[in-house]
């Protein structure tokens, strides 16, 4: 392994290495391959900073594969248990629904008018594939995405600024503290008056729902950032904009994503409420319309659709979070 690495380095022309190239190769030969344990490295190295070509290390493949296989086995078994439990969890819900509607269970809770799973399935096959239903879904998704995107675009930068600068905080926090306790649903009448059309009003309500969780979690993210990291950034030569981009933003990212997950939940709640009250089209409107038309299977279909859409949205946020923050898998306190 050592000799291969040496040959590689000698053969590849290393950019940026000055006249000392010969000496470099010598010293590479002199210093044995990396010791297996890195806690106590070689202490007597030649007084040269050895340039190292930017290419991947040669790793002992066999043992690594073994480790990976062992890990994979472990994970799949864990995952299988998880999957089985998930099925049990959802299956129980369906079972209760099925049994309740089959025997028309009636003791305080009334299953009398609740449609059976089969009826709902039938409804889904009929209505679910109709253009109108798909259009309803598309409208809701568009509203969510628009409101949520605006909430991110305003909430995250504003949160970072409020968290970083006392003056910005002094300016924005009082108004935030007043507006925050007002639930998005309470904004519905005002919003309808305020905005020129229904569509803008609904998007605004969705925005309100998502905005405060995102804003507050972002502020919290900046505040909980370890001060030593900011000092480290500054003495490594970062100016204020660089600090913002390279330290404060990535450092607050875990909290920002908490805000996004919470915000997405609240955004759906707000959206459905807004659609029920003021809407034309949308899943919330569909569900409410079904109620006023006494179309019971459609009510259930609407509810299930909302659940699935909400799940998909938070799933996407979680996935993006994992992709953007791979280091969290190793953070202390993470499940492992």
């Amino acid at each position: 392994m050592g000799s291969m690495a040496r040959v590689n380095i000698a053969a590849v022309p290393i950019p940026g290495v000055d006249a000392d190239a010969g000496r470099v190769v010598e010293s590479m030969v002199a210093s044995a391959p990396e010791p297996a344990s890195h806690e106590t490295p070689e202490l007597t190295k030649p007084a040269t900073i050895e340039p190292v070509a930017p290419e991947p290390e040669i790793v002992p493949i066999v043992s690594l594969r073994d480790v990976a296989q062992g890990l994979l086995k472990h994970i799949t078994r864990e995952r299988m248990i998880t999957a089985v439990l998930a099925c049990v969890s959802i299956g129980t819900l369906f079972l209760i629904w099925y049994l309740g509607t089959k025997y028309r269970f009636e003791f305080y809770i009334r299953f009398k008018n609740v449609p059976t799973p089969a009826e709902v399935f039938q409804q889904a096959m009929q209505v679910g594939l109709s253009n109108k239903f798909v259009y309803n879904i598309a409208m809701s998704v568009r509203r969510i995405l628009t409101g949520f995107a605006i909430a991110i675009a305003i909430g995250v930068p504003l949160g970072l600024m409020i968290g970083r600068y006392a003056r910005v905080r002094d300016l924005f926090m009082p108004v935030t503290e007043i507006l925050r306790p007002i639930p998005a649903i309470a904004w519905v009448p005002m919003s309808i008056m305020l905005w020129p059309n229904n569509e803008a009003a609904i998007v605004f309500i969705t925005f309100i729902g998502a905005f405060f969780p995102i804003l507050l979690n972002t502020i919290h993210g900046v505040h909980s950032l370890d001060g030593v990291l900011i000092r480290a950034g500054r003495c490594l030569g970062a100016n204020e904009p660089q600090l913002f981009w390279n330290v404060i933003l990535p450092g607050s990212l875990p909290h920002i994503f908490t805000g996004l997950a919470v915000g997405m939940g609240v955004a759906w709640v707000s959206l459905i409420a807004a659609e029920m009250i003021s809407g034309q089209y949308g899943v919330g409107y569909f569900t409410w319309e079904a109620y006023s038309l006494v179309d019971y299977p459609a009510i259930m279909l609407g509810m299930i659709t909302i659940g699935v859409l909400g799940l998909a949205c938070s799933g996407i946020i979680r996935m993006v979070g994992v992709l953007l923050m791979p280091w969290l898998a190793f953070a202390s306190g993470s499940k492992r």
């Binding site: 370890d226 030593v228 990291l229 000092r231 480290a232 950034g233 330290v247 990535p250 450092g251 990212l253 923050m325 280091w327 953070a331």
Partner: peptide, 8 residues
């Protein structure tokens, strides 16, 4: 204190 950036 340890001051490495955990995200890098």
């Amino acid at each position: 204190q340890y001051s490495l950036f955990p995200w890098l």
